[in-house]
Nucleic acid binder design. Structure first.
Lengths: 236, 236
DNA sequence: AAAATACAACTTGTATACAGAAAAAAATCG
DNA sequence: CGATTTTTTTCTGTATACAAGTTGTATTTT
């Protein structure tokens, strides 16, 4: 095969995405161009193009004359996440119910099968990735080029946040994951029926479940007062 | 000055953005790497990096082994635009009212001054760019990394759609533009007061005005039935 | 001994040269 | 004369070499 370079580029892209989503590459990690180009048999030129692409999608941050860095996740961005996610998720699922095609629905069912398998016998990474894949397909279904950039950006950090609570294995957590799986099934049904109201409601439910999990694990009480902050800072 | 290359890169980026926003480069236009790298004194390597960046932001489409192309605007994307814009604009202005800083408010006032000046004595391009700049600042104010990608994507096509109705000079259109300017002033006031409810309401009003304009000029009646389409296509 | 500066090693950014693919043009065949 | 295949040309993608910038270290100076 002579599309070596092209496939290696795709491999690199996929490798970086997965590594970032699963926190194997933690937020803030510096990426070494020389090392990566060596490891993937690519010269630095195409590698840097991949960097730019991933930066555009929100996986990486680029700083001039400094190494590329896995995008950070601060408490500020977490707050932004909580504000944006419910709205965008709702809109995406509503549109998915409107526009989904047969092959897309099949793809969604496949993704859900993989998710269930990961719940039974997979690692935390497997679960996060399978869940990410499921929601990624709903994004494709919506097909709205204006919403997708934000949706995909949200999915990145949702996977990363999720990794922190896919890890600890308490009984309640397993229960919640099984509930999430049930919601996925309901989402599929709503989309297949073209029932956008149901899809929107399920998006809210699914988000609330996820939100509860996140609050339990990564948020002590810092964001319990999210709305009453002073609106603007006056210097001097 | 020895940051020649860096500044030329920024110049090229800005040139392409402006050209695309003002429709001087029309949707679907092919970009010639050799010509552009020649014109801006850059080699193809940094030029292609700029292409990738702009593609990530939604200005360009990249196809492998084919020239970069100014992103298309079909009637499909127009429909998506109408679905996404009101929601995202509302959220952005609401957040802007919450989070705007003093310097940002000053920047917004400056942008509004420039917009007014463009209304008085500027070209259609000047108006579209000034309006784009105004809303761009509101995006900065919101500071939400998850909403900004979609918001900025919307602003691109909003400017391009706007160019089509900033051109014809009817009396009613001038009136509407002046109304838009008034709304800008009200938006500034709401943001400065930190009144997020007012900001959200103004976003809706401002959008409705813009929507009326757009419908008048570019939409005959194709999108008057936006919600009742068949939800999914079943082959065979 | 601490701080500052100069130097060296390394990393990022750009240019050029080359390889491969698509498009255009020319030639051959029906 | 038209259609199709082959050749040529043009443009995209990649690699390598080089320039510029950054960081760490060592030496010098106070």
């Amino acid at each position: 095969m002579k599309d070596d370079a092209k496939s290696r580029k795709a491999e690199l892209t996929e490798h970086l995405k997965v590594s970032i989503l699963t926190l194997r590459l933690q937020p803030g990690t510096d990426l070494d161009e020389a090392h990566l180009s060596d490891a993937f048999g690519l010269s630095r030129t195409p590698l840097r193009e991949v960097f730019r692409q991933l930066a555009g999608e929100g996986y990486l941050d680029l700083r001039t004359n400094r190494s590329a860095r896995v995008s950070e996740m601060s408490y500020t961005t977490l707050r932004d996440f909580f504000l944006a996610a419910p709205m965008v998720y709702g809109a995406i699922l509503r549109l998915a119910a409107q526009n989904a095609t047969r092959p897309q629905i099949d793809a969604l069912k496949e993704a859900q099968q993989a998710f269930k398998a990961a719940l039974r016998s997979g690692s935390a990474e497997d679960r996060a990735l399978a869940n990410n894949r499921f929601h990624d397909v709903t994004g494709e279904m919506s097909g709205n080029v204006y919403l997708l950039p934000s949706f995909n950006r949200l999915l990145i950090d949702h996977a990363r946040i999720g990794m922190t609570f896919y890890r600890p294995q308490t009984a309640k957590m397993t229960e919640n994951l099984s509930e999430a799986s049930n919601q996925h099934d309901a989402i599929i049904a709503a989309i297949e029926a073209g029932d956008e109201a149901a899809a929107a409601q399920l998006a809210e439910d699914h988000w609330n479940l996820s939100r509860d999990q996140i609050e339990l694990f990564v948020m002590p009480d810092a964001l319990d007062v999210p709305m009453g902050v002073p609106p603007l800072s006056k210097p001097a």
